[in-house]
Amino acid sequence: MVLINYLLMCLIFGTTFLAIKLGIDAGAPPFFSAGLRFLAAGGILLSYMVARRRASFSLLLRKEMLLTGAGLTFGVFATLYWAEQYLSSGIAAILSATAPLMILLLQTFLTRQRLSLSSVAGCLLGTVGIVLLLLPGITMSFSKLWVLGCAAVLLGQVFYSAGTVYSRRVVQRFRDESPIALNAAQMIYGGALLLILSLFTEKVDPTVIFTPHAILPLLYLIVLGSMTGHTIFYWLIAKTNPVFPSTWLYISPLIALCVGAVLYGEPISLVSVFGGITIIIGIIVINLDNLKVRVVQMRK
Rank of each mutant, 00 (worst) to 15 (best):
I232S: 03
H213N: 09
V208P: 00
I237M: 12
V204W: 09
G225D: 06
V208Y: 01
L216K: 09
G225C: 06
T211R: 14
F233T: 00
P212K: 04
P217A: 11
I237S: 01
H213M: 08
A214T: 04
H213I: 00
I209K: 04
I215F: 12
I237Y: 00
A214H: 08
V223F: 13
E202T: 03
H230W: 15
I215G: 02
P212H: 08
I232R: 10
M227D: 10
T228C: 15
I215R: 04
T228Y: 11
L216W: 14
I215Q: 02
I222Y: 07
L221G: 07
T211V: 08
H213G: 02
V208W: 02
T201N: 14
V208M: 01
P212Q: 05
V208T: 12
G225R: 09
V208G: 00
I215C: 04
V204E: 12
Y220F: 15
T228R: 05
T201R: 14
H213K: 14
Y220W: 13
T207L: 12
T211L: 03
H213E: 14
D205M: 02
D205Y: 00
M227A: 13
P206Q: 05
H213L: 08
Y220C: 06
P217M: 13
F233I: 01
L218H: 05
L216F: 14
T207S: 15
G229P: 01
F210P: 00
S226C: 07
E202F: 08
T207Q: 13
T207H: 12
F210Y: 08
I237P: 04
T211M: 08
F233Y: 15
G229Q: 04
L236Y: 04
F210V: 03
V204F: 09
T207Y: 06
F233N: 10
T207I: 00
Y220M: 11
T201P: 08
A214D: 04
M227F: 13
T201L: 13
A238N: 14
I222F: 08
F210S: 04
I222C: 11
K203Y: 01
I215D: 05
Y234I: 07
I237K: 10
Y234R: 06
K203G: 05
H213S: 14
P217C: 12
G225M: 06
W235N: 14
Y234F: 15
G229L: 08
P206N: 08
T211K: 14
A238K: 15
L224P: 05
V204M: 10
P206L: 04
L218Q: 14
L236N: 06
A214W: 06
H230N: 15
T228I: 15
I222P: 10
E202S: 05
H230G: 01
V223C: 11
E202V: 05
F210W: 11
V204G: 09
K203R: 12
L224F: 15
F210I: 01
T207A: 13
F233L: 10
W235P: 00
L224C: 11
W235Y: 15
L218C: 05
P217Y: 13
L221E: 08
Y220E: 03
F233M: 10
